[in-house]
Design a protein around this nucleic acid. Sequence first.
DNA 1: TATTGTTATACTCTATAACTATA
DNA 2: TATAGTTATAGAGTATAACAATA
Lengths: 134, 134
Amino acid sequence: MQDAFIDALVQSAFQVTSVLTRIGAENDLSLTQLRVLGILRDRRPRVTELAAHLGLEKSSVSGLVDRAEQRGLMAREKNSEDRRAVDVFLTPAGRELAVRLFSEVRTALGPTLGALGTERQIRLIELLEPTLDV
Amino acid sequence: MQDAFIDALVQSAFQVTSVLTRIGAENDLSLTQLRVLGILRDRRPRVTELAAHLGLEKSSVSGLVDRAEQRGLMAREKNSEDRRAVDVFLTPAGRELAVRLFSEVRTALGPTLGALGTERQIRLIELLEPTLDV
DNA sequence: TATTGTTATACTCTATAACTATA
DNA sequence: TATAGTTATAGAGTATAACAATA
């Protein structure tokens, strides 16, 4: 029973991930780049904070931001209070892309799961909530 | 409302993925290698089938199996009916590792989610099931 | 001294294209 | 001809270690 529960959760995770990966790939973005786009929508973290969020080393994030910066999606700016730190944020182009892609995510996941019906959705959120404390 | 639902589902997916990635990394396995280990527990697919399952190109799977084979976790064997095809399966060592790691996954995800209580778990599976048709 | 970020290096993952063997 | 798999190649993602700038 416990096992069936965990399998269902893992399968559901792979399925959601696969949708996100596909939408990213269609726009030449890795899953990680897509995540960064999502994170930066309402934040302006320094490199170390971003790395902690993603569970990556800061050197890996340096590379990620390098490539996104070359594509004009993100930018860096020295933090004015601590001049060792570098803030990362979306350019207007990056923000546009983020908005568009997350609308695609809703479109892709919505119908599949919309079949649940609003009432079931509410119950699902209630059930998932305790698992969301990171 | 719909948005909150989708955010919860995506966050839950990232969280599950992060647990799987950590357990894999602690054993020098990528998330993909861990997935393959899981798939091969009860299957003996040919390379093309495995690629379809993972959503990867067959050349990528060739490399994955190469590296797992070098570590003694998987093995290849020519299919006797279609001699173009190659079956992939776990070695005894691979099977042992798979059993151990998936027990770790249950241990890691169980308590977090065990807090839900058995009754909520049953309801959650019922809710997730419609999303599991791949 | 400690922290922040970058760079150098090496390996894995992945896709595309070209190839071999079999159907 | 078409399909199954491998190999060659190239780029992204990642970690570790060494480094420069700032605290």
